[in-house]
Amino acid sequence: MTWPTGVGRHVLDVVDSTMTEAARMAPTLSGPAWILGLRQTAGRGRRGRAWVDPAGNFAATLVMRPADPPERMALRSFVAALALHETFVTVTGRAEPFALKWPNDVLLNGAKVAGILLESSSASTGHLAIGIGVNLVSAPGGNEVEAGALRPVSLLSETGARVTPEEFLDILAPAFARWEAQFATYGFGPIRTAWMARAARLGETVMARAGTQSHEGRFIELDDQGALILVTARGRVAIPAGEVFFG
């Protein structure tokens, strides 16, 4: 794989959090850059949850400054998901075990193998940080995840594929660059179509939780803003942000 032109590559032996490091580095960066932490001491996931990150797993953040409104920047979670899916297929030579779970997880044999976290800055840096965590060699125990959440698994345990974080990054970065170029050129439409072709439980009944409200319905599509569309007993419901649970 050829590293994308104009994109920085920073590999740190130890870091508190690659997302935090991205915020620190953003003011000095002249272009997009990947930050890989071989060990994180204070990794975090969505909604402030801790991200368990044993040695050998993948924890990286892409920091960039897209000249987009916030709603368009948020669509890059789908760009990142497609890049991750492509990377897993490249590493394992198999596509069938992998699926994308709305809004920002990658599944392997129906269990969680990777997660994506987006943070944007409204300060003068105006940066977007896309954090990616992958269970390459080990996964948290069931008691370390939220009640009702999918079981976490590792790439190694499920497929036998062993890849280092640096090797994974060297495949992921070019994949992201290709999907990002498509997004920049053609908009969200092709990204949306590609994501749905890899979506977990499309056409099936799921439970979505948005704030204090829960909706049960058949997952039929994403809309053109990336919202989850369910057909419920009360009709069609669009969920712009939230969590999905499988029965």
Rank of each mutant, 00 (worst) to 15 (best):
A42F: 08
R44L: 02
R44G: 03
R44D: 01
R44A: 00
R44S: 01
G45Y: 07
G48P: 03
R49V: 06
A50C: 04
A50Y: 04
W51T: 08
W51D: 06
V52G: 00
D53E: 14
P54K: 10
A55F: 03
A55Q: 13
A55E: 14
G56T: 10
N57I: 02
A59Y: 05
T61R: 06
T61P: 03
T61F: 04
T61W: 01
L62H: 08
L62R: 14
L62D: 02
V63N: 00
M64S: 15
P66Y: 03
A67N: 11
D68S: 04
D68E: 14
P69M: 04
P70D: 02
E71F: 06
E71N: 09
E71L: 14
E71Q: 12
R72M: 05
R72Y: 00
A74S: 14
L75I: 04
L75W: 01
R76N: 13
R76M: 09
R76F: 00
S77C: 13
S77D: 02
V79E: 08
A80R: 03
A80V: 15
L82P: 02
L82T: 13
L82E: 04
A83P: 03
A83R: 06
H85N: 14
E86H: 12
F88W: 05
V89E: 09
V89L: 07
V89M: 05
T90P: 00
V91Q: 08
V91R: 12
G93T: 14
A95D: 14
E96N: 11
P97Y: 10
F98Q: 10
F98A: 12
A99T: 15
A99V: 06
A99S: 15
L100D: 07
L100C: 13
L100P: 12
K101V: 06
K101I: 08
K101G: 12
P103S: 07
P103V: 14
N104Q: 09
N104T: 10
D105W: 03
D105E: 10
D105G: 14
D105M: 12
V106W: 00
L107W: 00
L107Q: 07
L108R: 13
G110D: 04
G110Y: 01
G110K: 05
A111D: 15
K112A: 08
V113A: 07
V113R: 02
G115C: 09
G115E: 05
G115H: 04
G115D: 06
L117D: 03
L117F: 06
L118Y: 05
L118D: 07
L118N: 10
S120V: 11
S120F: 04
S120I: 10
S121M: 10
S122N: 02
S122C: 02
S122V: 09
S122W: 08
A123L: 13
A123T: 14
A123F: 02
S124K: 11
S124G: 08
T125C: 12
T125G: 01
H127L: 06
L128E: 00
A129S: 15
G131H: 10
I132S: 07
V134L: 11
V134M: 08
N135I: 10
L136D: 04
V137W: 00
S138W: 00
A139W: 00
A139Q: 05
A139G: 04
G141A: 13
G141C: 09
G142N: 15
N143E: 15
N143L: 05
N143Q: 13
E144Y: 04
E146V: 15
A147N: 06
A147D: 12
G148D: 08
A149N: 11
A149R: 05
A149I: 07
